[in-house]
Amino acid sequence: MSDSSHEPSFFLKHEFAIRRLHSLLGIIPLGLYMVVHLTTNASLLNGPETFQRAVYLIHSPGKLLPLIEWGFIFLPLIFHAGIGIWITKNAHLNSGKYQFTSNRRYSWQRWTGIIALVYLFLHIMHLHGGFHAEWWLAAIDRFGLGQFRPYNAGSSLVLAMNLGYGIVWPVIYLLGVLSLVYHFINGLWTAGITWGLWISPQAQARATKVCVVLGAILTVISLSAWAAAVFPSDADAVEMRAVEDRMYEAGVESGMVPEMEEKRWHDSSEIEEEIEIEENVQVSRGQEAPAA
């Protein structure tokens, strides 16, 4: 319609497709991943064996794992988060002035997005470590980061949670996890409108009810996951580790679990020794597999 030769920017020209992709990625794979991830974590409640088995399952693709991890989680997440920040930046939040429920939900969608960003950064640093260069891991390990050991899944998780007087991480996790549950469920509802699934106000009200139920279920799951990671003490962790170690040995023996010492728990001093001794491992550790 514009009368001149002015060309909108690439972003504006493809804004529709980008926003639809953003919406889609929020559900598949991110939302889906989160559900599976939280359920897996919640399985720790059933004991370290269940959890460890799940983690073994997840880690079974072996060398393909990084590909899956990047293709289905990190890249979509980075895209969704990046666009999400841009969207939030351009919003003119006004739920103080217009205190309608839907407007509050809209504002919360943005706030929880930002919380999610911070949380996920901390969360991944805390357990996963981000980069897998040895020097990096060693460095952040001093700050209690990069703590997760897939072959000692339950125990390393519990120990990691108990760092920092056992209160800092649990609080961060609680906030983050609940925010993300809200963000995902409310996002599901808005996506239904975005894609034209629920149209009339009545249909939207029904969809709200369904989302509330889903949200409640997911909240229970996420609180279970949280509780399972937070409540056990360091002493419990030592017991768990014994179980995990046994499973590992049995697994390696039967050929079900590939032998990968680096996915196990070691004292930090041990790690430093390893660095000096085993050069090869350093390289392969650079692309570590995810946990649950």
Binding site: L12, E15, F16, I18, R19, R20, I87, A91, N94, Y98, F100, S102, N103, Y106, S107, Q109, T190, I193, T194
Partner: peptide, 11 residues
């Protein structure tokens, strides 16, 4: 500036 900009605030 099309429909995609709507964030379903419903104000």
């Amino acid at each position: 500036g099309g429909i995609q900009v709507c964030g379903n605030a419903q104000n």
